[in-house]
Design a binder for these strands. Structure first.
Lengths: 188, 188, 188, 188
DNA sequence: TATGAATGAGCGTTCATTCAT
DNA sequence: AATGAATGAACGCTCATTCAT
């Protein structure tokens, strides 16, 4: 039941927004009562935290697996991370939108749990860029921090428009983006 | 007074969110009463529409000016648009965050006013990419639509992290991003 | 309207208890809506504080007037205070019951406003006892503090049983009590 | 377990109030679940009745023992009863406060069980006063009923302020009160 | 003997909005 | 141009109670 509530809440929060979705909306759409909700969650915000953690933890684990694969070059690792994020939209896109949009609805104490994980994800990419620069895979004069924000912008913004059942597949989009990131769009 | 209310509302909506900011919060922070608000706006959503239109209209005008300057190459125009968006964060960053985050709080009728303008902005960039491809400035095999989404991701995401009074200036960041977009990060 | 709400709330809180009376109960019995209540009071507890202050402030003023009347002896002043408290039951009995019974429903900050006043009333009586001991009106070996608690017990407990429209009038009861306090019940 | 629940409930009801203490509060502080509570008690009010009866029955028994001791004078019996009530604060003070304060939370049917016992306790004292008047121990012109209310006021009010581990012991306080009741505070 | 899941009614409070003045 | 009083619907949350196990 707890899982059922969480899943349905992700659907509703994504569609209507966290503040705009009432507990009543949520439980009615499942067919239980408010009491049931509060049997499983201590508050609405607790549920939001659960969603955040479920999303970012899975992402971090996947990222870790990619980064620790020593058979891959930095370029390949970057491609894998980008593809993971695009592919992710199919299964986790709603949770992702909530993650990016509703963070402000977490209290300071709860933010203190989530924010370091979000930063970790970004810093892992930044570390990958720096390593690639050292190994001669990436240009040596990059501003790794800002470039990372750029890459994250490309991928995170995809949650706003990418349609997994549209014309271009996730792998195609990921390839286009990685090619853009690596080679640019300019004629040489 | 109407302007005063709008300006203050942008500050509050950005900080706390649209749904989380009450009319009471708003008018109290200005020192007037709720009646005053409803003298100038027919509803809270009307105010939100005003903010949206103020933001996107100004952006479109500025974009148009850049695109119509025939003395500039496509690359240069692209740079100008990116720089405009980054620079914009200093003066319009709060409105931009509201624009991206609170669109779901507009009714369908009001969305029908805003969405075409938002799409126009994107399609203008897409057109610029296509033109650049034709003119031999950009690689001829690009997926203009997806590349445009990538560029917009880079710039729009900046509203989440770029601090105009931080280490890197708006022009620096814009340059880094345009270089990344044009040349990529890979060693040739 | 504010006064109307306060008066009616005193009636209901006395009869059913503070926690047992809902805002709904209160506003329905007046014929307005909950919104109206919250237009005049910031919270239910704020209303309770209002009742407490209205009661104790009036009592303190009256007591002050009695104590400052230099034409009266200590015995006479004591009689006046006891009579005031018994007489008070007719007009303020409901507020008094709330005052004694519902103090625990005030937050610590609000208690900090009320408690000193309640203590002041008691200490004023204690001071009167001590003065009477010095002036030779009362026995010189009394424990003024405990005696004061005894006197307050007699008067405050009256709110639980004294019926102003019953067999004995307020003046009669006050006389019986003061005679008991002064002379005791023992045959000399 | 039933006793454990009752004891803990007395502690909580006294501190926070009956309505302000939830079954959840109660069972959590003991480490059992709500089901357990409802295995032993049919309702929250039933528990409150248990507390009331436990308190008043014990008091009545003790009072009966004092009154039936034919070796004692009326004055001595009065002293014993007053001392019993003050002493009682140490062991039964919390139950006493609940008894006086939370009676309004009993339904009419349950009140019909408790109120006659409470009245009996008072009437027993009134009877003692009358007997003392007949026997020439007390002044013959007393209003026994009101005097009894005065005595009960003194003792019952003690639950509000008397601290068994404070400066004055229970016996001292009882002596001061009985002396006050018997001889008054006036210089003869 | 005790639990855990679920209910349904109610609570204090907030809020966008209305409207006579 | 602006206010102040009032509304009514909704919200997050609590709670006493039930009941199958």
């Amino acid at each position: 039941m707890k899982e059922k509530i969480t899943e349905q809440s992700i659907r509703l929060f994504e569609k209507k927004g966290f503040s705009e979705t009432s507990i009543q909306d949520l439980v009615e759409s499942i067919g239980v009562t408010k009491g049931t909700f509060y049997y499983y969650f201590s508050s609405k915000e607790e549920l939001l935290l659960d969603i955040h953690l479920g999303y970012i933890n899975e992402l971090l684990q996947h990222q870790e697996r990619i980064l620790n694969d020593n058979s891959k070059s930095c370029k390949e690792k970057l491609f894998e991370i980008v593809r993971m994020l695009i592919t992710n939209i199919k299964t986790q896109g709603q949770a992702a939108k909530i993650f990016f949009r509703e963070m402000k609805n977490l209290s300071e104490e709860r933010l203190a749990i989530v924010v370091p994980k979000r930063d970790q994800f970004r810093l892992n990419i930044e570390g990958l860029i720096i390593e690639g620069m050292k190994l001669g895979e990436f240009r040596p004069d990059l501003n790794a921090s800002i470039i990372t924000f750029g890459i994250l912008g490309i991928t995170n913004w995809s949650y706003q428009w990418f349609n997994p059942s549209g014309k271009s597949s996730d792998s195609e989009v990921a390839e286009i983006f990685v090619e853009m990131i690596l080679k640019g769009i300019q004629v040489k």
